[in-house]
């Protein structure tokens, strides 16, 4: 379908991610299976201007380092299924921990929108968030919303619209690690590029390999086998 885009929702548990999903998609929801795995994710659609968005509600996770089944599911979707936009939902009242996840997503994929939820609750508590500074520091759009009271939705949808139509571009600012780690990343990264090209962020992959992410390695091999099968059958 032309003018149809996939938007993945990622975020910590208890950030109102599902509230946002429900508020956006209303009752146009179903549970979809994807990529041959028996993992089902809630999917729904929302129309805005001339475009249709398919929203995928990823499991709520604290990180994306594949410590658990849920984290693997969310990670695999973002990296391998390549949604057009990954929307990271953050809780405005506990931004510090929530940003930790956002920073991980920025390493994995390019088209990211950071969506700060529960903004009304935060303001009641006297927490003021300057989204312009955050946008500049992160290199991706930062939008403030309240999913519960449907505040900030036009802005959010417009941002998505402008991102998928290429009016704005994301340049996620990567986290720099200690010199020692950066050196190691560089060593591995060049070799990764010759192996997977530009289909996956080589910096992220280098980090995961250094970290010893065996689950990711297995996923790679599984998908490689699958691709071979598809190619042979075609």
């Amino acid at each position: 379908m032309i003018n149809s885009y996939r938007i993945a929702l990622a975020g910590n548990p208890n950030t109102g991610k599902s509230t946002l999903f429900n508020a956006l998609t209303g009752l146009r929801q179903h549970t979809g299976n994807w990529a041959g795995k028996t993992v089902s994710l809630a999917e729904g659609t929302v129309k805005h201007k001339d475009k249709t968005y398919q929203i995928i509600d990823l499991p709520g996770t604290y990180s994306l380092f594949s410590n658990s089944v849920d984290e693997e599911v969310a990670r695999n979707y973002i990296v391998f299924e390549k949604p057009d936009v990954t929307l990271v939902v953050l809780d405005a009242t506990s931004l510090e921990r929530n940003l930790n996840l956002a920073l991980q997503v920025l390493e994995m994929t390019r088209n990211v929108i950071v969506c700060i939820n529960l903004i009304d609750e935060a303001e009641k508590k006297g927490i003021n968030i300057n989204e312009r500074i955050l946008t500049r520091k992160l290199g991706v759009p930062v939008v403030k919303i309240s999913a519960r009271n449907k505040i900030g939705f036009p802005m959010l949808l417009d941002t998505i619209d402008r991102l998928v139509s290429g009016t704005i571009e994301c340049n996620p600012v990567q986290t720099t690690y200690s010199e020692e780690i950066e050196e190691k990343i560089t060593t591995i990264e060049s070799k990764i590029r010759s192996l997977v090209g530009n289909s996956i962020s080589s910096r992220w992959l280098a980090l995961r390999l250094l970290d010893g992410d065996e689950a990711l390695l297995n996923e790679f091999n599984r998908r490689l086998v699958l691709n071979d099968q598809v190619r042979r059958e075609a």
């Binding site: 604290y62 990180s63 380092f65 410590n67 510090e96 921990r97 930790n100």
Partner: peptide
């Protein structure tokens, strides 16, 4: 340990 790190 990894979970604790993730949580801050």
């Amino acid at each position: 340990r990894r979970r604790l790190l993730d949580l801050g």
